[in-house]
């Protein structure tokens, strides 16, 4: 299980981003984080990915614990790629083709060749037409699929995803999210930041609503039907009105 306890983050200027966040991400489960923009969702994901240092709290990845502030003597190495992330900006390497972007980390991590598995992903994500292109020759939606494929090829236990469907069309969103649901069977714990409430309703095991730097409400997807807090009710109303 990937857990966070009393996690707080503040910028160097002292501005607090989030406070006392507790969460559990189970293997084989899908946790969806929703909330208004600028409320600290991406920063929380970066902290869970052990890329940013929280001001205080603890993150545990299975048996491995990371306390903050970092104790004297430091931490054990972060368990990448067992814990991996796909960011909104994707971060594909511009000098490599999309295929090379996927296969380079596979090779360097000493994983098996991966070509066969990549072929399956190419088919599942409709990437055949552009896999030999460079990132700047592909659309944002195509790059989003490649970035997700790169993470999946590393056989992670925990996959943290930040708005990875923002540039996809409806058909592609359905394919990708459908694929994510199948990852349950592979025992991968998924943490997904998204505005797609439909996916949260139908596929999530747990929904977290973040607002004002705290987890304002959490529970099963039922909270999206019967919100317990006024703030979540307002948020859902705004989204419903917009759509």
């Amino acid at each position: 299980m990937l857990t966070a306890r009393n996690l707080s983050f503040a910028y160097d200027d002292g501005k607090t981003v989030f406070n006392n966040v507790d969460l559990d991400i189970d293997l084989g489960g899908i946790t969806v984080l929703i909330g208004p923009s600028g409320t600290g969702k991406t920063t929380l994901l970066r902290c869970l990915a052990l890329l940013d240092q929280p001001r205080s709290g603890e993150i545990a990845v299975d048996e491995q614990r990371f306390a903050f502030p970092i104790p004297a003597g430091g931490h054990a190495p972060a368990p990448w790629p067992r814990l991996t992330a796909v960011f909104q900006q994707l971060f594909l390497w511009p000098h490599l083709t999309l295929r090379e972007n996927i296969l380079l980390p596979v090779r360097l991590n000493g994983l098996e060749d991966g070509h066969e598995e990549l072929d399956k992903l190419i088919e599942a994500f409709d990437m055949g037409a552009f896999i030999e292109r460079y990132p700047n020759e592909a659309s944002l939606g195509q790059r989003q699929r490649v970035a997700l494929a790169r993470a999946l090829m590393l056989k992670p236990h925990y996959l943290l995803l930040d708005e990875i469907t923002s540039a996809l069309d409806v058909e592609q969103i359905a394919k990708i999210l459908g694929y994510l649901k199948t990852l349950r069977g592979q025992n991968i714990g998924i943490f997904l930041i998204t505005h797609l409430l439909g996916f949260a309703r139908h596929a999530a095991d747990q929904v977290l609503f973040m607002d004002g730097g705290v987890i304002a409400e959490s529970g099963t997807p039922d909270i999206l039907k019967n919100p317990q807090t006024e703030r979540l009710f307002q948020f859902l109303s705004v989204i419903a009105a917009a759509s």
Binding site: A49, L51, W80, P81, A85, P105, L108, N109, L154
Partner: peptide
Amino acid sequence: VAGRVCGMR
């Protein structure tokens, strides 16, 4: 960062 989360040394 992308290299790190992909487990590259």
